[in-house]
Design a protein around this nucleic acid. Structure first.
Length: 776
RNA sequence: GCCGGGGUGGUGAAACUGGCAAACACGUAAGAUUCAGGAUCUUAUGCCUGUAAUGGGUUUAGGGGUUCAAGUCCCCUCCUCGGCACCA
């Protein structure tokens, strides 16, 4: 047997043994506590995985392995969110059916995940494009429909010309399509929506109950955009109704004109605001004054009622508009104490009301409340909560998706496909096939047409975490009893780019399921963490077109899976973006080899170790167990590796001493090292575990624990400051009183040098940390 | 504009409730080994200064403050990345 670390031999040797013993199969042994560790549902792209993806999959794998060793029942599954455009476009271009591309790509992902030893339970692999999967996506559509949460409406919506489909609001980022980054335009179409807005309150409130990164919670909150104001009758001024006959022509021209302008122009904040008078007036209920009505392009039709009371003196946009059209600008709020100050631009801050009748003198905050109450009292209006949030548009004008299970009947309207007829299976051919579209109305039996739009892919990922519990179950989407055991997901890891898409949609579906009584929880993901992006060594994003992609395949070939895994963890702070380093991975390879050599060369012996050095090694063992455990649990993978490196550096020193290296204590040290390293470097540790004499797998070992009392030292080396400057380090027994410490410090010449001839004004002693003299 | 994250050596980064700034690596330099290259090992490495030692000074974007003590807390300014953006 080779006495060098040869990862290629280990890669041959171990995987078959592991799969034979079923090491990573999830057990349903309910006597253990459970841990559900999940990755975001990946789309298996034709490019395969890059090392960047491993920043997601390696940490979750390490945590899963840690939790297994800690005695948890771990569910760590993987599956494929495989509906989507690339496969469809590829099919159109190359004539290969998406089913085949999808299967091929998924198999490749799985091969690469195996390559880096991800310990998924592959018996639970799922694929959203499998009819046995999407039948349940369709079932959930029907559930939403039944509960009045799915509806059709015509409206102006985002259209991506490159993807040739409508998108939901969340899927447009800075005017660009989230997937292909094309500029989006608007289009009017009748579309299916899910009424996610009726869950706005709960989607905000329940954020308090989850352990998620603050910024993701904030993004969701901002996206929902709750705001309280007053709504004053009339509630909806339709343009035609309110247009005075004399102004009809110019208003119509204006509306036609605005429609021609591109979305980009209309959205620009700097653009000059335009509008035309309707020729009619509204009455301000507060002072009975006539207010001219205008139609303008800077008021959003989709927010609130689509009509606003302009306040030119206190809003920059209204100010600009009023100036342009010579409308009166009346100041009613002033800065406190500055009420007489002349006024030349919009004053948008809160202040004190002036010239506002009975409300004059009130602060803005109070006035808002009082004026709302005043309106409500007089029955002229009421407090109103508004949200920026829009309903989720789910129709996609694409082939490769889950068909919306609806039949359009001329007589009965849109009729849901009966549950027992699910799944509505996609036609084999990528085009509208008459024989597929034609169907009988489930209601009246007359001939009717199927809905040809498919569902947004985010529908598939809104419930997939339930399917893993029992992926082959025929009778329902998931096993309800298992759901109450396994869920919610204990740890969920993926990229921050899904902050307001997938994560919001999945939360919404979960709440609907809870309302239906299907599940006993309201939030699907208890703890969420986002990995940072991995850039190429040139600091740019890895992309095929730039030719800077690094694959796990080439790195495993060069350094093996253990080194690659450890390096991915060591590379940088988990949440932050970091650039790949070719030199860095060599350093990690050195470390892995050092571990191999030291364990191999010094397997320990029967002697017992005594004395100061033995105590020191004992402290090292316990301290390392403590910090490594803490670091893994807090996602500080980089410092975790640093601790393990320090430990190995220290062991290298200890090994030089035969009074240590041939003892049982040394044996304990290397066994502890192997256990701690097992989740990170599964091949290396398994091989060494065998070589030091164990028959069974290191991955079945229990996670080491530490004894707090064994990491205490009797003597602490404490820094001593004089007037804030470090002057010496003094060895102080930990049980010394403040006075003893003071005396001990004053024995140091280096300290006395700075104190002599002066008086000690203050003496501070923080045990084991710091001594500080203040002298004058 | 608003919201959120950042700014620490040549590089990636550490630093728990304020308590030795720069752990752990990479890189670099010198030495050992080697026919050579590579690999490995040892030592040094924030900056300035130096009488060379157990020396002195200085340093966490910039400025001010609180404190015996500040990367960490408070105030102001600058830069940067991400999200939202005519939401009245």
């Amino acid at each position: 047997m080779s006495d060098r670390y040869d990862f290629k031999i280990l890669q041959e040797k171990w995987p078959s043994r592991w799969s034979q013993s079923g090491l990573f199969k999830t057990s349903e042994n309910r006597s253990k506590p459970k841990f559900y560790c999940l990755d975001f549902f990946p789309y298996p792209s034709g490019h395969g995985l890059s090392v960047g993806h491993l920043r997601n999959y390696v940490p979750t794998d390490v945590i899963s392995r840690l939790k297994r060793m800690q005695g948890f029942n771990v569910l760590h599954p993987m599956g494929w969110d495989a509906f989507g455009l690339p496969a469809e476009n590829y099919a159109l271009k190359m004539g290969v059916h998406p089913t085949d591309t999808t299967a091929k790509n998924a198999a490749n992902y799985r091969r690469q995940m195996d390559l880096v030893a991800c310990s998924y339970d592959w018996d639970r692999e799922i694929n959203s494009t499998d009819p046995e999967y999407y039948r349940w996506t369709q079932w959930f559509f029907l559930l939403l429909h039944k509960r009045g949460l799915a509806y059709q409406a015509k409206g102006s919506q985002w259209w991506c010309p490159s993807c040739r489909t409508i998108l939901a609001n969340e899927q447009v980022e800075q005017g660009l399509c989230w997937r292909c980054e094309s500029e989006v335009t608007k289009k009017d179409l009748t579309q299916w929506y899910f009424k996610i807005t009726s869950y706005s309150e709960r989607l905000i409130d329940d954020l308090k109950t989850v352990d998620w990164p603050e910024n993701i919670k904030k993004m969701q909150e901002n996206w929902i955009g709750k705001k309280i104001g007053a709504e004053v009758t009339p509630e909806h001024p339709f343009v035609e109704m309110l247009t005075h006959p004399d102004n009809k022509t110019i208003v119509e021209e204006y509306v036609a004109d605005s429609k021609k302008k591109s979305e980009i122009d209309r959205l620009s904040a700097e653009k000059e605001k335009t509008g035309v008078p309707l020729g009619s007036f509204a009455i301000n209920p507060f002072n009975d004054e006539k207010i001219p009505l205008y139609i303008g392009d800077y008021v959003l039709s989709s927010y609130g009622t689509g009509a606003v009371m302009a306040v030119p003196a206190h809003d920059e946009r209204d100010f600009a508009f009023a100036k342009k059209y010579h409308l009166p600008i009346r100041q009613v709020i002033a800065a406190k104490g500055d009420e007489e100050k002349p006024f030349s631009e919009a004053f948008t801050e809160y202040g004190v009301l002036i010239e506002s009748g009975e409300f004059s003198g009130e602060t803005s905050e109070c006035a808002i409340q009082k004026m709302c109450s005043w309106l409500e009292m007089k029955n002229l209006g009421k407090r109103k909560v508004n949200y920026k949030f829009r309903d989720w548009l789910i129709s996609r004008q694409r082939y490769w998706g889950a068909p919306i299970p609806i039949i359009h009947c001329d007589f009965c309207g849109s009729v849901p496909v009966p549950e027992k007829e699910l799944p509505v299976i996609l036609p084999k051919v990528i085009s509208k096939v008459d024989s597929w579209v034609k169907a009988n109305c489930p209601n009246c039996g007359k001939s009717a047409n199927r809905e040809t739009d498919t569902m947004d892919g985010f529908a598939c990922s809104s419930w997939y975490f339930l399917r893993f519990l029992d992926p082959k179950l025929k009778s329902f989407a998931f096993d309800r009893e298992k759901a109450s055991y396994w869920l919610p997901v204990d740890l969920y890891v993926g990229g921050a780019e899904h902050a307001v898409m997938h994560l919001l949609y999945a939360r919404f579906w979960t709440k609907v399921m809870a309302d239906e009584g299907l599940i006993p929880f309201n939030e699907p993901f208890a703890r969420l963490r986002n990995q940072g992006m991995l850039l190429a060594s040139d600091g740019q994003k890895m992309s095929k077109s730039k030719g800077n992609v690094i694959t796990p395949d080439e790195m495993v070939e060069k350094f093996g899976p253990d080194t690659l895994r450890a390096f991915i963890l060591f590379l940088g702070t988990f949440e932050l973006e970091v650039a790949w380093s070719d030199d860095g991975i060599k350093g990690m390879h050195r470390f892995v080899n050092r571990v191999f050599d030291i364990v191999q060369e010094f397997p320990g012996g029967p002697n017992s170790a005594e004395g100061e050095k033995a105590d020191e090694l004992t402290r090292w063992i316990h301290k390392t167990v403590k910090v490594v455990t803490r670091d893994l649990e807090s996602f500080s993978f980089n410092t975790c590796l640093a601790r393990l490196m320090e430990f190995v550096n220290a062991l290298s020193d200890f090994a030089k001493d035969p009074n240590i290296a041939e003892t049982k204590l040394w044996r304990e040290a290397i066994e502890t090292l192997l256990r701690l390293l097992a989740p990170i470097a599964p091949f290396l540790t398994e091989e060494l575990w065998e070589r030091i004499g164990y028959k069974d797998s290191v991955h079945k070992e229990t996670w080491p624990t530490w004894k707090e009392e064994l990491l205490q030292e009797n003597i602490a080396v404490v820094p001593v400051q004089v007037n804030g400057k470090l002057r010496d380090q003094v060895r102080i027994p930990v049980n010394f009183s403040d006075d003893d410490v003071r005396k001990e410090c004053l024995k140091s010449e280096r300290i006395v040098k700075y104190i002599s001839g002066k008086t000690i004004v203050k003496f501070i002693h923080i045990p084991k940390r710091m001594v500080s003299f203040v002298v004058k």
